[in-house]
Design a protein around this nucleic acid. Structure first.
Lengths: 230, 230
DNA sequence: CGGCTGATTGAATCAGATCAACTGCTGTGG
DNA sequence: CCACAGCAGTTGATCTGATTCAATCAGCCG
């Protein structure tokens, strides 16, 4: 990971969702703190168990957060794109990263060192509130994820995910940002199973798959699958 | 749920982990805010989807947080005992509860209304920091839980859980605080499976089970099971 | 002594993982 | 420009951990 020549500006900071609500002064402070870095595709940003000296935010590209089992299997916890922060739990825990982070594409990120950020936050209730909102949102996501993983079968998880993409991309013709193999890991399964279920949903006329494009043909029935499984 | 006659005191507030690090003044403010309630065994504190007007802390007894699937299956996300706060995400999200809460035993709790607490926190960086630490810890727990649920089989999850109880209770002769059926839900499985695996671990001489008491006979091999499954 | 609730055991079944083979596709170098 | 390496995705056959259904059992309490 190399230090990029660009100097972070208050404007760049505003692009980070977490900080977009803050005032000019705070953003300037943060810009002074932020260290820009660029990472190649496949490069590790940090590894599970690494001492957490600070957290990151994606400026460009995408980064996946994943856990690896001794067996070699992996589970993708998150995929973060531009504007999203990751590794922030480290700042308050002062412990080690509980998962690993790896760039999926050539990316650039900001790094916020623990000590400096902690100093800012301990004097600025607005910034603290903003972090609280972030963590709360993450917590909520995890609750939903645990629910899905334990209470629902793979077709339901896939259907739910497709519907989520639909509302995010605001169209019935989805473009998968992630390779299918990564998507399988995210859904807590393996590529073979994902492939079969995509095929099954196609046969049933709920969706149409063509490479990285998935068209939702019958959103209602897809919603049923997401609820009750298939 | 009935209003208990006791008036919350700053001392009672100090018993809540989340607030134990705070100063006298903050605790007095919180005491003024807190509404004591008592709940019977089996009574619902709140239901998934309820408007979240505030959060709770357990004073006495225990409360489980769980998600229910349309199929009727449930998954226990947490069990909270005295001193622990729950439902706090609601305070920052201002949305609905993502899961339900039910008393496992006759319990008493404090209720902290959203508006008042939000006011306190937005002016007090220490309190905010304390909340940040809480949420970070929760997040970390969830990451571990997701890892276990997706990457490990039931024996591994059970073994990990027993080892966790061991370090919490600081003895090799564990007392299960939860009925086995609830423990099964917490481990993301069903009572039958839990029963079988406990039996298997007993046969192999790793543990000894007798009612609500589980003795760990071979912690090393149990740790292996937790890592690699069986 | 019933009768309820939790726990256990057995048998059948199934969703999903694994293993293995095969099909593209894409880029690279001779 | 073609060949071939390499990787993502698909498909088929098989295996197995875990759930489900059902019956039985153990405690505990009124």
């Amino acid at each position: 990971m190399s230090i990029s020549p660009t100097t972070p500006t208050a404007t760049a900071i505003a692009e980070i969702d977490l900080f977009s609500g803050l005032g000019e002064r705070e953003r300037t402070d943060l810009a002074r703190l932020a260290v820009p870095r660029s990472v190649e595709k496949g490069e590790l940003v940090f590894l599970e168990g690494d001492e957490a000296e600070g957290f990151y935010a994606v400026v460009e590209g995408s980064v996946r957060i994943y856990k690896a089992a001794p067996s070699g299997r992996e589970h993708v916890l998150h995929v973060f794109g531009p504007g999203e922060a990751f590794g922030e739990v480290a700042v308050f825990e002062g412990k080690r990263f509980p998962a690993s982070a790896q760039a999926l594409t050539p990316s650039s990120v900001f790094y916020f060192p623990r000590a400096g950020f902690h100093r800012l936050i301990s004097t600025d209730p607005d910034l603290a509130l903003s972090m609280l909102a972030l963590l709360s949102g993450r917590l909520r996501q995890f609750v939903r994820k645990i629910e899905e993983l334990t209470l629902k079968d793979v077709p339901a998880r896939l259907a739910a995910h497709l519907l989520l993409l639909r509302s995010a991309q605001n169209t019935d013709t989805l473009t998968l940002d992630l390779p299918k193999s990564q998507m399988a890991l995210y859904l807590g399964t393996v590529p073979e199973t994902l492939s079969r279920i995509l095929a099954k949903l196609s046969e049933s006329g709920l969706i149409e798959v063509s490479g990285k494009t998935v068209s939702i043909l019958d959103a209602d029935r897809l919603a049923e699958v997401a609820e009750e499984g298939l």
